[in-house]
Every structure is written in C-alpha cells, then in structure tokens.
Design a protein around this nucleic acid. Sequence first.
DNA 1: TCCAGTACTATTTTT
DNA 2: TAGTACTGGA
Length: 673
Amino acid sequence: MSGLNSRQLDAVQYTAGPLLVLAGAGSGKTRVITQKIAHLIGHAGIPARHIRALTFTNKAAREMRERVSQSVKGLNARGLNISTFHRLGLDILHRHPERAGLRTGFSLFDAQDAQTLIKEHLRGVPAAENLSLPAAQQRISGWKNDFIFPDQALSRAEDAFEARLATLYADYERSLSAYNAVDFDDLILRPAQLFRTQPDLLEAWQGRIRYLLVDEYQDTNGAQYELVRHLAGVRGAFTVVGDDDQSIYAWRGARPENLARLKDDYPTLQVIMLEQNYRSSASILGLANVLIARNPHVFEKRLWSELGAGERPRVLCCKDETHEAERVAAEILNLKFAAKIPLSDIAILYRGNHQAATFEQALSAHKLPYVISGGTSFFARAEIKDVMAYLRLLANPEDDVAFLRIVNTPRREIGSTTLQQLADYARERGTGLLATCIALETALMQPEHFSNRQRERLTTFARLMTDHTTQATTDPVAAMTALIDTIEYRQWLRDNASSKQIADWRFDNVTSLMNWLEQLRRGEYHGQTLANMVAHLMLRDALDRQDDADGGDGVHLMTLHAAKGLEFSHVFLVGMEEDLLPHRVSIDEDSIEEERRLAYVGITRARRSLTFTFTRRRKRYGKWVSSEPSRFLRELPREQLAWDDDRIDTPEQRKARVLAHLGNLREILSNGR
DNA sequence: TCCAGTACTATTTTT
DNA sequence: TAGTACTGGA
C-alpha cells in the first residue's frame, strides 16, 4: 500500500461504515478503489466473492479488473466481481426471471430495438401532436431512470400531451412483456423493483454482496440509486467514489445530487476528499479551479498539485474551422518532431462529433495518424444486427422485433402487406409472429385472407427457424453456422455490397461474432442457455474489447464526454466558442453549469500542455456564421493564459512549422522504403 | 417489391 | 451542407 497519501490511505482502510470518497480529477481514485479491494480481501477478511465493484462502462470495468489483479497478487481473489451496473442487473434477472415476470430465455432489446417498437406504437398518431420518435423514446427512458412506472406517469400527467406520452409508455411496456423482452433501462429498474417488493430475494443478494464499491457515483440515476441503496441495506457496507464537478450526464438521467443524498440516507456516512492532483501541471490545474469555482458546490474542494507550474496554457485564435484544424495539425507536427512526443500522448477534444471531420482532413493531409473514438459501433452494423436477430429468434421465439428484422433478410418476398396480415392474425390468436407462422402450416382453420403463396413463404421461414432450434440449444455456433449457410448469407452480402472486399469484411465481422459466442459457450457461460449468451453479447463487452485491441498509435480525437476518465500529456481543447461550448441548446435550456463542468473535464485531462482554440467564423448547416470566444475563456484570468491573437503566424512559428513538416516528409519517405 | 427522389433534421451516448 | 428516413411510381 505504499505510494498512497494519507487521505487515500484513510479511504482504503476505512471499512467501519458507509464511505463517500470525493475524488477530484487526477487524484488517484482508481488506485484507491483497487487498493481498497485488496485491503478488503487481505485485511478486512471479506472473501473476494462477496465483493462487488460497479462501473458504468465495460471499459472502466475491464481497466479496474486489470489493475486489481496487480494489487491483489498473492491474495485469494477468486470470485471477485467487477462489472457494469447493467451486467449486475442482467445477472439478477437471469437468476430469477420468473420473479420479475419474465420467462426464461427473455430477450434484451437495445436502444434501436426499443425505437422500432415505439415507432410501431406511434403509427397512426397524428403528426399534429408533434411527438417525435427520439423525444418519445427519451421520455420513456427518463421515466424508467427515475423509477416511474406507466400508471404513475399517467397520473402525474398535467396535460393531454403528457398523457399521450404516458399511454405510449404503457403500450411500449405491454409489448415488451408480450415479446418476453426487457430493454437496457429495465436491467436496472426491474432488479431494483424486485428488491423493493421481495424481501427474501433482497436478503439473498445482500448475503451474496457483502461489500459494494461504486465508481463515478455522480453518474448514477434514480433507479441505480435505488439498486445501490437496497443492496447496501442498513449495514451500509459500501464505498462510493465520485466527483460532482465531473457530472456531465444529467441529460441522460444522472442525478449528481445522489452524492448529497447519501448523507441523509446514511447519517454515519464518512466523507473523504481527495484533493491532491497527480496529473496536471499547476498552471493547468489553476485554470480548472478558477473555472469550476463559478459553479455552486455542495462539497467545497480545491485541487492542488506538487508538479511544477509548467507551460502557460495557450489560446489560439483562428479564422475559421479549416484554419483551426490547420493550426492544430501544425502544432502537433511540432510536438512530434521538435519535442519527440509520441502521437498517442496527444488528444484533440471537442464538444460535438461533427467537429471531428475538419481535424481528420488536416491530420490526413499531414500524414499524421489518428484514432477516433465514437462513430458507428460494431453492433450498429447491419450484418451483426442480422445475425444477432437470428440468434435472438432462435433463443426466444416470441421476439417479434427480431422476427421482423430478418423475416425478409435475405429476400424471401415477404413484404409489408403480408406482414401486416400476419400481425393482424397474430393479434387475433394472441401468439407471437413466429408461432403464428408455424400455426399457419398446421392450423385447421385457415384465415381466408392469406393467399397460398404468402402462407407458403411464411411457413418456409418458420420451418427454417424450427429446423435449427434444437441444435441451437446444444451448440449454438454450429446451429448458426448451418443457418447462415442455408440462407446463403454470404452470397447475400456480396449481392448487396459495393465491392467484394466490403462483403468479405462484413462476413469477417459475422465470423468474429460467432467466435465470441463460441468463447462464451466454452468459458464463463458453459452450460448456460443461448438466450443468456445472446443477452451478454447485447451488453457489448466484446465490441469494446476489440476496439481496445486495434486502437493503434495516433493522435486521439474524441468528444469531451468520451474523454472523461482519460489523460493525455498534450490536450487541444478546440471550438471554445459560444453556442458550441457552451452549446446553443444548453444556453437555451439554462444548463450552463453542466457545460462548464464539460470544459472542466476537458482542461483536467491535460498533463503537461493545454491549448484552447476558437474561430472567428464557422460554417453552420452550410452557412457562414460568425462566432465569438466562449464565456468560459473569458472566465479565466487573462494573465494565466498565453493569448495568440495574431491571425498570421510569426516568422518563428512559420519556421518551426516548415521544419516540422520537412521532418514528417523525411519520415514518410524513409518508411516507404 | 424495389428504387429513386424528396422531406427532414441537425449535442453529448452508455448499456 | 450532409446524412438519413420515408413515400410514391415502375
């Protein structure tokens, strides 16, 4: 436990009751959590299998696992469980599906599936009601995150519009239950509800989890708060770590006030503040402190650093976004060749993804490699969604969303008219779409409105699925491989891709998916149902792992949101303009404080150098719009920044740029050989 | 059933 | 401007 400061040590050793660790940016919170786990096992006598650590992302969970495995060397860490909130929820539901009103083999719907479902219910609603699909979806998700059920939503509705939304919510829930499916929000909501209503279950889980650790606690939403509160119980055997200044997810239901709420729920709560920053130079940290001091605080803290003053952070003024990208690229060339900084130590951070494009162009033009996080993920790819839908339907024949996705993929000449008829008939019978297809083959009473042609096509598809169902339970990979073969999926990809290369690449993705499934079957999911494995894949852990693996060397480009939890030697915080950071919408909604925290997160990512940029004008939806520097820049003391107002580079800068550029060319040439 | 032209929208995003 | 979602004709 060497190398911890006294506050960190206190946080690690305090196990007598509930503990809140307010960990400022760069204050070594991950170290505290990992050391604490080692301490709990080694000194507090809590068996590893009774400890559960919760994070928000797979990546964070994985990193914590890696770091813990180092700190617990020599201890018996078997059964130690570090996972995301959603994974814990899935574990709970998998153990007692019937208690949560589910049947075994239930499906897990992602946001896309949920949207499809809501869209279905939104059909026929007059456009005048001005109900957009994303808004409706966000609203429903918001209710779920706040632990509000449809009937409550309806009774709280203040006008017809609200009531309409609440009804939509109720419809949506009814469909989910008919399809034997849950969505991502349910993975938190339903376990929390189980614990609230079924004391024996709660007791069992409290016995299983005797010590709870939660990372990024300021990001918890209402339902997550409930879940943690129940699991912690009256014992309050938990440590939560968070930082209200880094709360940037209010828009998706996070309740940073959950930090303060803990004090009320647990009067014996101990609070430890970690204020020593081990990351940033004093001049960077100074700016961060000044900026965030403008926000109201429940817990006052002030970060300090023993690292030297370092370079004064700079502000670059640029003509427009092209010039901005150009200047940043020039700076990066300079860092690379004059200062020999590895590109992976450099990050460009921005508010919105659309800002990335110009930087990509500028970096490419200078042959500077970059890694961009975000963008279309593995699971958003059509071929993956197709195969996942086949798997889901094999595992859960009632998954109508999966059915609809693949019933005509590849083309089986089953169009919307046929499907509408099928859906009507299914509603009449009260069965799922696949079951209805099967019934079409054997049912004595045939509804007249199906032509022989249509019936034939539907039953052929049903047979295709049933032919592989049995095998899918014993050897899903073999079953799915056979299915892919039968439907000639590879050929279908070729027919629909612009080139053979793309088709082959798509099929490679399918192969990777199958490999993950096989790994699961042989490993941690040995002996478990296909449905459980598919649900696991839906949580996207596999995808992250791949992203990490092929995240090569290069400048990092990402949004401020994506940068939380990371650090870089040299940070470019670009687009520091009104209407961008703070964003126009946030200004209108009066949520400047969250935007300020976003800027704060950006600043505190930097270790050695920090460069802000802003432009004089920017293209917006094709039109030039003049822009002015962000109020956040004006909130920073002018003397602590090096403003570079020159529109034209100084001779020295130009010289440095030319030299750097030559160096780059030389390297490209020598690599080419 | 399929494709092409047109209407619409435009932060942040994890699971 | 650019990208996607939907509708109507062949």
